[in-house]
């Protein structure tokens, strides 16, 4: 595979754009940033093609790049929020320092935001937002990208066992959060 070949780059883009874009949206909570991250993912893939290991899966490699860029974005946003305490930055109309659920809501057209304003969704987004980075990514890759523990482990550079533990912990937290908000189904008792 040579991503410097235009036809191949396009093919790989078409096969992965949706998954990568949605991972970025869910991680950073902003469509515009997600588009930026998606584009930068492919620019990195292009300029750092030599970091792709022969025999590996292109999608796994791209997910790793996309995930790292998303984390970078979130950390830089934190720095920015920290810095704004020190020297307030003139508002640029974005929502740095806010949770991604808030930024996602604010980046949606009003009609969409209206429709999606329901308790469960808000609660789930907030709960995922509160998960540690690694647990959040594991949940997202598993739930929305249908990856096995082994595949997630390859993206994150962890063991499959660690990934499974992460997923379990994350879901336990989700369940507790739902329960606390009165949103867990009645038949599900707290087992922990």
């Amino acid at each position: 595979m040579d991503l410097r070949d235009p036809t191949q780059l396009r093919k790989v883009y078409e096969a992965n754009k949706r998954g990568l874009y949605n991972l970025a949206v869910r991680l950073v909570g902003d469509r515009q940033w997600a588009e930026d991250i998606l584009q930068e993912t492919f620019v990195r893939a292009y300029t750092r093609a030599e970091t792709f290991k022969a025999g590996g899966k292109v999608s796994t490699w791209l997910y790793r790049i996309c995930m790292n860029l998303s984390y970078d974005h979130l950390r830089a946003r934190k720095y920015r929020a920290m810095a704004s305490l020190d020297a307030p930055v003139t508002s640029t109309g974005d929502s740095d320092g806010a949770t991604w659920s808030a930024t996602l809501a604010s980046s949606m057209p009003p009609a969409v935001a209206q429709v999606e304003q329901n308790d469960t969704e808000d609660c789930v987004r907030r709960l995922i937002d509160e998960l540690p980075e690694r647990e959040r990514t594991v949940v997202l890759l598993r739930q929305y990208h249908g990856m096995t523990f082994k595949e997630i482990a390859e993206v994150l550079g962890l063991t499959a066992r660690t990934v499974q533990n992460c997923l379990r912990r994350a879901k336990q937290k989700l369940f507790f959060g739902l329960k606390e908000a009165g949103l867990a189904p009645p038949q599900a008792e707290a087992p922990y």
Partner: peptide, 13 residues
């Protein structure tokens, strides 16, 4: 059941 509830909640997205 708890895992199922957590998983089901994620389908809102």
């Amino acid at each position: 059941a708890a895992l199922r509830a957590a998983t089901a909640s994620l389908s809102v997205w």
